[in-house]
Amino acid sequence: MAFIVFEGGEGVGKTTQLEFLHKALKKQGRNCLLTREPGGTPFAEQIRSLFKQVDPSIESPIPLTELLLVSASRAQHIAKVIRPELCEEKIILCDRFLDSTYVYQSILGKIPKQTIDIISHIFLEDLLPDLTFIFTADLDVALQRIAKEKKRASDRMDTQEKEIHQIIKEGYTKIYQEQYQYPNGKVPNRILIDANQSKELIHSQIKYALEKHLGISI
């Protein structure tokens, strides 16, 4: 079993790489699950919809409200999907996890990391990703990708000011460089991915990391 997380800002290509990896693992006949946050269960997906489709012209949630919504979704996701599937020896591929909360609600939203850790420790306990890939891309590249993704349902995160996207990128770099600890005091194994590279090269790097760190050969 393995719990593998893909992290990064908008337009960095992490979801595409998740789908590539999921298909490769399924082709090998491996027992794996592709999931996401916020979301991952029917109820958690309802929270995601509430969280993502807010009309900022009417009212936007304050960072603390965002934190509580994301935490509620994550608690449901862990209890109903992640822990049970890990017990079934599955490989779980998750689009976003706690590092996103550190970036969006702490670094961007100015909520102290300690507050996030206190809330998160209740439902995380000793849960820690086995491997976390952090994708970062040049800002112009990421914004161009967002604009080109015609199938992508635009949400309030996509339409944030350019400066906000820069803070998000710097936030993920900060988490990686400063080795942010999870609430249990442990540091997850994080790998920084240069998302400016070709899809094929990134996929090769991911496959190499899986074999090196988890013994999963693709």
Score class of each variant (00 low, 15 high):
Leu64Asp: 05
Ala72Ile: 00
Ala44Phe: 02
Ile78Lys: 04
Ala44Asp: 03
Ala79Glu: 15
Arg83Tyr: 10
Val54Phe: 07
Gln76Lys: 09
Glu89Pro: 01
Ile91Lys: 03
Ser106His: 03
Gln105Thr: 08
Ser73Asp: 00
Lys113Gly: 06
Ala75Cys: 12
Val81Asp: 04
Cys94Leu: 11
Tyr104Phe: 13
Ser106Leu: 04
Pro63Ile: 10
Ile78Met: 06
Cys32Ala: 03
Glu59Leu: 13
Pro112Trp: 12
Gln76Leu: 09
Ser49Asn: 12
Ser100Leu: 04
Lys52Asn: 10
Ile107Ser: 03
Leu93His: 02
Leu33Ile: 14
Arg48Ile: 06
Lys110Ser: 14
Ile119Gly: 05
Leu67Asp: 00
Thr41His: 04
Glu66Trp: 01
Val103Glu: 01
Ile107Asp: 01
Ile47Phe: 04
Asp55Phe: 07
Ser57Met: 13
Phe51Leu: 14
Gln46Tyr: 06
His121Met: 11
Ala79His: 15
Leu68Asn: 05
Glu66Tyr: 05
Ile91Glu: 01
Gln114Met: 14
Gln114Ser: 15
Asp117Ala: 12
Phe43Arg: 08
Ile62Ala: 14
Arg74Cys: 01
Leu64Phe: 14
His77Trp: 09
Pro38Tyr: 03
Gln114Lys: 15
Ile82Thr: 12
Glu59Ala: 12
Phe97Lys: 05
Cys32Ile: 07
His77Tyr: 11
Gln105Ala: 04
Cys94Asp: 01
Ile82Cys: 11
Lys80Arg: 15
Ser73Val: 01
Arg96Thr: 05
Ser49His: 12
Gly39Pro: 05
Leu64Ala: 12
Leu93Cys: 00
Arg36Asp: 02
Asp117Leu: 10
Leu98Arg: 02
Gly109Tyr: 11
Ile82Asn: 08
Leu50Cys: 07
Gln114Thr: 15
Ile107Cys: 06
Gly109Val: 10
Lys110Trp: 07
Glu59Arg: 13
Val103Ser: 00
Tyr102Pro: 00
Ile58Leu: 14
Leu34Lys: 11
Gln76Ile: 08
Phe43Ala: 03
Cys32Glu: 05
Ile82Trp: 09
Pro38Trp: 00
Arg36Phe: 06
Lys90Gln: 10
Glu66Pro: 03
Lys113Glu: 13
Pro61Thr: 06
Asp55Ile: 08
Gln46Ala: 10
Ala44Tyr: 00
Lys113Asn: 13
Pro38Leu: 05
Leu64His: 11
Ile116Asn: 07
Val70Thr: 04
His121Glu: 15
Ile107Tyr: 07
Pro61Ile: 10
Gly40Met: 07
Ser120Tyr: 02
Ile107Thr: 07
Ile92Gly: 02
Ile47Val: 13
Lys113Val: 14
Ala72Cys: 10
Cys32Asn: 08
Cys87Gly: 15
Ala72Phe: 00
Leu67Val: 02
Val54Arg: 05
Leu64Met: 14
His77Ile: 09
Pro61His: 10
Ile62Cys: 12
Gly39Tyr: 01
Ile82Ala: 09
